[in-house]
Structure formats: C-alpha cells, structure tokens
Amino acid sequence: MEHVTVQGVEVPAVGLGTWQLTGRECYETVSAALELGYRHIDTAQMYDNEEQVGRALADSAVDREDVWITTKVTPGNARRDDVVESTRESLDRLGTDYVDLLLLHWPNPLVSFRDTARGMAELRDDGQIRHAGVSNFRRWRLRRAREKSTVPILADQVRFHPFYTHGALREYCAKVDTMLTAYSPLAHGGLLDDPVLTEIGERHDKTPVQVALRWVTGFENVATIPKTTSREHLRQNAAIFDFELTDDERDRIARPSYLKSTGLFLRNEMGI
C-alpha cells in the first residue's frame, strides 16, 4: 500500500470509508478490508458504527498499531468539553486507547474552532488522539482554522472526484503540507460506467473505478476512502498503484461540474 506523507506523518493512501455501513454489514466489510491488507479505516460519531469498526479490528489478526483509524466529532460536540467527552465515548465504542486522527465532521458556525482545537489539544496531550483535523472545510475555513488552532491541522476530509475537483483547496493543502482526504471519490456511483474512464481503463487493463481512484491519488498530499461492501471491489480499489496515468489522461478525466456533482449527490441522498 502506498502512503501519503504530510507533516512527517505517513498515512495509507487508500482506506475504507464506512458511511452508511452499520451492524453486521459494517463488521464484515471492515473485517474483509483488514484481511485484504487495508490499514486505514474511516468512521464517525454520526455513522453510528464505531462499535462495529472496533469489534472488527479487535477480532482481526492485525495489530492495532498497524491500522490508521480516523473518527469524526459531530458539529454538536464542537465545544471543548464536548469534544473531549464525546471522543472518549468514541474510544470506548471503538475499543481502543487512541485514534490516529480526530476530525471535526462539519463546521459549526456557533462555535469558534479555537475552542474545538483546545479540546483536541487536550486529547492529544493525554495520548487519546495522535493528530487533529477538519472535514468539509472549504479553503477559507481551513485557513482560518489553522490560524486559530492550538494543534496542527493534519487533514481536511472533503467530497472530491473528477466532477468536483477542489482546485483551490487542493493547492492550498499542498502549500501548507496538509492532507486532503477524498470521500465519495466515485461521485456517488456516477463514475462506475463513465465512458472516459472506461476508455482509459481499457488502455491500462483497469476498471473505470480503478482509473478514478488512481486519478485522485495522483495529486500531491491526497488520500482517499472509497466505500464498498464487495470483497472483489475492495481488492480492486487497493490495486491501483501499478500503473500511471499520462498528463493527457488526467486532463481528460477532470471535468468539474457543480451541477453534475450536486445532482449525483442528491440522487444518492434520496436513494434514486
């Protein structure tokens, strides 16, 4: 597995996203991912699956120290004391003494990030988190958070795919040595049969999904956490580092479209 290195920290470049995975399905998917070599698992308080993620890790043959675990604090827990208390509850559900990365899941306009960061700093000082970051922060919010934070911001996790390319944020993250973690890298399923990706994939003997993930991970400081429950797709999602896309191919893949991106997001949210 390839790694992204930011601020001297190595993070597996491809992880498993667990949004909308709950119960037995979550446990079995995480277990399969660990068995297949995944060492980066992403969860959140809002996902209501931290317990299943923790059980899968505890039941696996993989040492806790070898797995990068990210969880996220809900915006309603953004105040310092709530950050500390809710994260400790997350650790109990996960069955671990620490998480590698703790993110604020969404901005909370009613709480200064300075207060959130103080809670994260307390957790870091107590050894309960290794690193801190944010999620769904646009460039200006990330810049402001970095200015206010009492703890280094290691990552910003955002929706990122060929139709939603976050050029300004991506460039800023590279400039300040911050990881951009791409969720929904397959555009909520909208890229599964994309003709451009299909054509390029045939040239490299890869699936459209593998081409999309290779495009995402080809950027500086970018990791990704695609979600799938299929064992075969888990295997394919990790097998993307044995080929390179040309500059021309990368340019063809990137087709920013706010309208298309939003439509695919809403279709997924509404189950259409």
Rank of each mutant, 00 (worst) to 15 (best):
R114L: 09
R114Q: 14
R114K: 11
D115W: 05
T116R: 15
T116S: 14
A117K: 12
A117F: 10
A117T: 11
A117Y: 09
R118I: 15
R118V: 10
R118S: 08
G119I: 12
G119P: 03
M120T: 13
A121G: 06
A121C: 06
A121H: 14
A121S: 14
E122I: 15
E122A: 11
E122V: 13
L123H: 03
L123Y: 03
R124Y: 06
D125T: 07
D125Q: 07
D126N: 08
D126V: 04
D126H: 11
D126S: 09
Q128Y: 05
Q128T: 06
Q128F: 06
I129G: 00
I129R: 02
R130V: 15
R130D: 13
R130Y: 10
R130M: 12
H131C: 00
H131M: 01
H131T: 00
H131P: 00
H131Q: 02
A132I: 00
A132S: 07
G133Q: 06
G133S: 06
G133C: 02
V134C: 04
V134W: 03
S135Q: 06
S135H: 01
S135V: 00
S135I: 00
S135K: 04
F137G: 01
F137E: 04
F137T: 12
R138M: 11
R138Y: 12
R138C: 03
R139L: 10
W140E: 15
W140A: 10
W140D: 13
W140H: 12
R141K: 14
R141I: 06
L142S: 06
R143S: 14
R144F: 03
